[in-house]
Amino acid sequence: MIALALDVGSWILLVAGSFICVTGGVGMLRFPDFFTRIHAAGVTDTLGAGLIFTGLMLQAGLSLVLAKLVMILLFMLFTSPTASHAVAKAALHSGLEPQLDDVDDRSGVDS
């Protein structure tokens, strides 16, 4: 009974994670400029990877495999923002301008 529930749960998580990953890939191709594409990559890096790894954790049961899955997931969650920020900062400093919706005075959150 519990085994069946775990199977169904990991099924749902894996399919949802796969869908989110594909969504990130579609965003990577669809979005208009570099800075918006970072957001698409972020979806795959955080929610997609998180869902897939949680789905695998339900399959692993209480074992060393579970510990390894947790470690890899934590490592990815720690490094992905650092890598994104490094790429974005390097792009900004090399003179790549974000393509914005319209003219904006960099304080106009309420505009």
Partner: peptide, 16 residues
């Protein structure tokens, strides 16, 4: 963001 990827409704902005 996932919904916005499929609908394409984005309005990029840079703020401090």
């Amino acid at each position: 963001v996932a919904i916005r990827i499929w609908t394409g409704a984005i309005s990029p902005i840079v703020v401090d």
